[in-house]
Design a protein around this nucleic acid. Sequence first.
DNA 1: TTGTATGCGTTATCAA
DNA 2: TTGATAACGCATACAA
Lengths: 348, 348
Amino acid sequence: MRLVTIHEVARNAGVSIGTVSKVLNNQGQLRAETRLRVRAAAELLGFRPNDLARSLHRKRTFTIGLVSSDRFGRFSIPLLEGIEDALDSARVAVFLCKPTDDPAHERRHVESLLAKRVDGLIVTSRRTDPRPPLDTLGTSVPVIYAYAQTAGAGATCLLADDEGGGYLAGRHLVGLGRTRIAHITGPERFAAVRERRAGLSRALAGAQVPLDPRLASTGPWSEAWGREAVGRLLDAGPPFDAVFCGSDQIARGVADCLRERGLNVPDDVAIVGYDNWEIVAAATRPPLTTIDPCLHELGQAAASRLLAMIDGDHGPAATRHVVRLPCRLLVRASCGGGSSLKTADRAA
Amino acid sequence: MRLVTIHEVARNAGVSIGTVSKVLNNQGQLRAETRLRVRAAAELLGFRPNDLARSLHRKRTFTIGLVSSDRFGRFSIPLLEGIEDALDSARVAVFLCKPTDDPAHERRHVESLLAKRVDGLIVTSRRTDPRPPLDTLGTSVPVIYAYAQTAGAGATCLLADDEGGGYLAGRHLVGLGRTRIAHITGPERFAAVRERRAGLSRALAGAQVPLDPRLASTGPWSEAWGREAVGRLLDAGPPFDAVFCGSDQIARGVADCLRERGLNVPDDVAIVGYDNWEIVAAATRPPLTTIDPCLHELGQAAASRLLAMIDGDHGPAATRHVVRLPCRLLVRASCGGGSSLKTADRAA
DNA sequence: TTGTATGCGTTATCAA
DNA sequence: TTGATAACGCATACAA
């Protein structure tokens, strides 16, 4: 597949390659007729410039690398789409790297991306807990952590505001008049678990609603855990009129168990989930009011920021820089009140 | 971030760039001592060859482009991972393109990928129904369709064997002694729906078990549809002792409804799902026996095949070439029998 | 055994 | 207004 070069266009148009280059890049002072002739030739021959040669000369490739620790999961998709969204309008392409938690493997990937002279790197993860800093092998490529965090100095990290998310959920529930709020969530070791709880606490404290520790339980991120935990509360715990769940999956388990025990959601118990994992949240009976971490926006923000860094705006240079992006409350039916499908509310 | 070039390595080692190149590529006849010295210099300076320059010279970039119609979905993830898997060992990187169903947009993406001189293209989709052929803009880059299909001549398409999947499900159910098998699936317009049904029919026919048309219903790909459809059958249909579902989501709805109506799965009714969407299939009560379309393997196969095409093996040249990859039956608890978690069975 | 020179496909700087 | 020509960073045939 021998591709046509600028030389052939030049010959065909009866000009020099310099002229062709100028025409194609809209530069210099050229006769209009010449421009037309060159364009015609390029069109005719199906000329498409070679970005390799181009990038070799300019100092940019208009590509970036995406390296993920952990594996791809459902969180990756909105993130990815957000990233592509922002990058696409800037006409930059992204190299995808199969995620892995093996440092040696990651290193090889970075090596390869660097060899391809990517303009920047985005690091993503499934978890929001700190990971070791990405080894950029002595280079100074701009790096941004999206939905990932590292303890390294000078790192720019974009995260969802878990504390704010917890706050939104709590405020919504107390606003609805609920006062006995249970909290069923994931393993304590997740930063997200602790932060969301902090947000919930803040909201309840602000409304003088107590947070009963007997109504809080941590366990696996699963439906089964949601069923089990709420079942235990029903059997042996103090009464409650709402449950804030650590994930939509847990919330789903909670909703199923409550229904099977003859309780009505939201009349007897209101539920707020987390993640806005559409396919689960919308299929739950009743559909879940949930906290949307806005991963698409997070991806966009990360990409935009990276582009800015590439363009020389190194921001607060060499300063650790963690940004928390606001979550959104998405109201469905599981809390009653607004049966409006898309009422949104931003964190303070 | 001025990167060190081969010239600086040469100067540092006191040799010419030609010598450096030879050392780094293990070519020519060089004194061992020279090799060592050059390697040391390269190491010291942190030299990493510029793939752009390299690719400009060789006729390969060791990159491929992934273009998807439709949007990313959960099917994309295993497919993607499979692709990366195979590509990674061949040290080729992949450009990801934000999926879209807009032809103009797609064209722009291809344009950009071609400019970057990708060695090949993989087209993926969410649906298995034919899509318009990818416009490669007059070039002859190798293209392969993975979990996607096109009517164009000379296209190589890799698909999951839906007919075989339906057959596996049917054979499993009749093997378990079920004789009144319902089929609740997605919209008729999906090729996958029709083919899986064909496979089911073949299996039942082979066992002289009738396929009662009153027990077949098509509708949306949703849990709600699963509940509704099986509910209707319970209310007004002929009796049945098994349900083959078009997706794990539908199967989940079916399982939930049956349980709520007081029926036991698998004792009263056995269920086979489709997709092996782990997070749904495993969380269902009881966990779903399901057909795994083996998307990871499909991705791997597509990538390997593309690599072969790139290496000059154009296969049955200019011949339409559709390959169906076998599905796998994954036994969990929803059919009873094997409570073994991972019994696998390949399609004939 | 090593160095020189040319090409890969562009862009950009000068001359003309 | 246009045309040579030198980078860009590397590979390689050929010369030394």
